[in-house]
Design a protein around this nucleic acid. Structure first.
Length: 424
RNA sequence: GUGACCGUAGCUCAGUUGGUUAGAGUCCCGGAUUGUGAUUCCGGUUGUCGGGGGUUCGAGUCCCCUCGGUCACCCCA
């Protein structure tokens, strides 16, 4: 009989990995709090129309990557492919964006119907920040500094920050016209994909990896030369602010972003250590989106980061990620030991609520129990037999360090075990 | 959506030009040690060889289809 398996690209996160996930999430939460960002929790399902109107009809995400379906009333619904659209929708719905500043963060699963590969899954997890109501580059600098601090906290190295500016709507239109004019002259020499993009989304041609196309694109007009004064000043301010904070970056005129709502400054954190999916965090300014979704004109900037990619990178860079290994394994022998063990375990948990302690359950002689204690990664095994129960003591055996086994009275145990608690 | 490679025990894998009853390591269980793990020794359990069809006296092995995985294209976090 065929067993039911998870859907393609939908992964289970097992206990052997979930400690590392929790660590990343906890670090992110702390950093968001340190900058005064408030969490917003959003539904996973939205009206399809929301994503069409925000991300853009002609983008790949909307054209062919959304999990969309009709519900029982015949409405078209979509599992969210990203978080920004929902954040704006919720902000407008609850009046969060009207004439005020907001610093928000979110975290959770996103869904895109793509062919899975390293660092790319159909259900993947992002956390992101969004800041509303602040037009100057100082807030762009802030969200980037926040991301840099987070990556540092996670122990990541070797990431590089690339910036570009897409300008406002007007410069984008001007630049687009100039670019199309240039590319038309070389149309015959472009690869097939780029020829197709020329008609649909010419900016993406800049991003092509085909060598022949790259050679042509090298001489193409650069958007930087078309920037309006406002966008120009914004980019300069952003760069200055980053330099003031010592955050290294390069301007890469070829980074474009596949979502239509971006304006002015956009950026990506990338690594060369993750194969083809090297972008670990990306974002930018989207000053037009709030108005586009029915609000008043509101400046906005934000980014999103992929948790799976961060974890892949952490695994590649640091050999020991956190685990769920308990500190203490309590073994017992005989009926008297068994009956004394559970109350003792509860007393220890009362005294040391954060001490992970596993009480042996089920069958198994002492040898088997010690084996379990070792295998589950405990640092200390406690042994409680008939003799110990009668005298209200336990044997304390260190499993990881060369410390002789010693006896300890129940009353002294909390003090003795407190030293095992991990800092923080 | 396109392409390449790969599917044999819970895990990592071997399996000869097609040839008896499909193997190893690991893991797990028991014992050597009726109360001491990680080392050692002994014994034991673990299989729809991804699924279906075909060729053949005979298929884990060859062919076709299909499903799944990995990586890349594309795209993006």
């Amino acid at each position: 009989m065929a067993r039911i398996q998870s859907l393609r690209g939908f992964n289970d996160i097992l206990p052997s990995d979930s400690a590392a996930w929790q660590h990343v999430e906890a670090c992110a939460r702390e950093v968001f709090a340190a900058y005064g960002y408030g969490e917003i929790r959003l539904p996973l399902l939205e009206r399809t129309e929301l994503f069409k109107r925000s991300i853009g009809e002609a983008t790949d995400v909307v054209e062919k990557e959304m999990f969309s379906f009709k519900d029982r009333e015949g409405d078209s619904l979509t599992l969210r492919p990203e978080g920004t659209a929902s954040t704006v929708r919720a902000g407008l719905e609850h009046g969060l964006l009207h004439n005020q500043q907001q610093r928000l963060w979110y975290a959770g699963p996103m869904f895109r119907h793509e062919r899975p590969q390293a660092g790319r899954y159909r259900q993947f997890h992002q956390f992101g920040v969004e800041a509303y109501g602040m037009a100057g580059p100082d807030i762009d600098v802030e969200v980037i500094a926040l991301s840099a601090r987070l990556f540092k906290r996670l122990g990541l190295s070797g990431l590089s920050l690339e910036l570009n500016s897409l300008g406002g709507a007007e410069t984008r239109a001007n630049y687009r016209a100039a670019l199309v004019e240039f590319l038309k002259k070389h149309e015959a020499s472009l690869d097939a994909d780029s020829q197709r993009r020329l008609a649909i989304n010419p900016l993406r041609v800049l991003d092509s990896k085909v060598p022949a196309t790259q050679a042509i694109v090298r001489d193409a007009p650069a958007i930087v030369d078309y920037l309006d004064a406002d966008s120009r000043a914004h980019l300069d301010g952003l760069r200055q602010g980053l330099s003031d904070l010592g955050i290294a970056h390069v301007v890469n005129p070829r980074i474009v972003r596949g979502l239509d709502y971006y304006t002015k400054g956009v950026f990506e954190w990338t690594t060369t250590q993750l194969g083809a999916q090297g972008t670990v965090c990306a974002g930018g300014r989207y000053d037009g989106l709030v108005e586009q979704l029915g609000g008043s004109p509101t400046p906005a900037v934000g980014w999103a980061s992929g948790v799976e990619r961060l974890l892949l990178l952490m695994k590649a860079q640091s050999p020991n990620l956190p685990t769920h290994a308990p500190d203490v394994y309590l073994c017992w022998i005989g009926e008297a030991g068994r009956r004394a063990a559970a109350p003792l375990a509860e007393r220890l948990r009362d005294a040391l609520p954060r001490l992970p302690l596993v009480l042996h359950a089920g069958a198994g002689n002492l040898g088997a129990q010690m084996k379990r204690a070792d295998k589950c990664g405990a640092r200390v095994a406690l042994v409680l037999g008939e003799a110990e129960a009668a005298r209200q003591v336990v044997q304390v055996k260190s499993l990881r360090e060369n410390i002789p086994q010693a006896e300890c009275a129940w009353a002294e145990l909390p003090a003795r075990l407190a030293g095992l608690l991990k800092p923080n």
